[in-house]
């Protein structure tokens, strides 16, 4: 069954004809060419595919594109102000070396921003470690990711984003 879908992706109108079974992550990667959102486990456990859907983080490998009809979707590509100026959370991951291979990083950053906003920009190491339950990293051991998110929260607050 082919269905026409329309949504807002990173502030711009996006539409296309998809099969009912098309996943949101497939729509983003294959129809929109936004390959920053990764598919890791494909079983909704690893969090590499996390995007923001209408203000809440979600695993785009476990959402149909048609379920996002009319939604506002933000992906990792929609965070930075410009090629020169990263989002404060992206900058914090760079500064604190919160990645090694980088595969999980887009999902980590998207989950981190949701976590920080939900906690009113006040996060502790404990809140971050529990808040990242849905994101798996196979290289860093999480230590630097947690440091980056705690620092990123302060930068986000200071920058008012």
């Amino acid at each position: 069954m082919t269905i026409s879908v329309s949504m807002t992706v990173n502030g711009k109108a996006a539409s296309g004809n998809v099969e009912a079974r098309t996943l949101l992550v497939q729509f983003l990667r294959e129809h929109m060419g936004l390959t920053g959102t990764h598919v890791g486990c494909d079983t909704s456990q690893c969090g590499a595919c996390v995007v923001d859907v209408d203000g809440a983080s979600a695993k785009s490998c476990t959402i149909l594109a048609v379920q996002a009809e009319g939604a506002k979707v933000t992906t990792i590509e929609g965070l930075a102000e410009s090629a020169e100026k990263l989002h404060p959370m992206q900058e914090a991951f760079r500064e604190h070396h919160g990645l090694q291979c980088g595969f999980c990083t887009p999902g980590m950053v998207m989950s981190a921003i949701d976590l920080v906003k939900r906690n009113n920009y006040q996060v502790t190491e404990d809140i971050v470690r529990h808040g990242l339950e849905g994101n798996i990293c196979r290289c860093t051991g999480y230590h630097n990711i947690v440091k980056a998110i705690v620092a990123g929260a302060a930068s986000m607050k200071a920058a008012g984003v």
Binding site: S44, G47, V53, S57, A58, K59, S111, L115, G134, N135
Partner: peptide, 9 residues
Amino acid sequence: IGDRQVRNR
């Protein structure tokens, strides 16, 4: 339940 992203859906 689950993780944050699961609870959001």
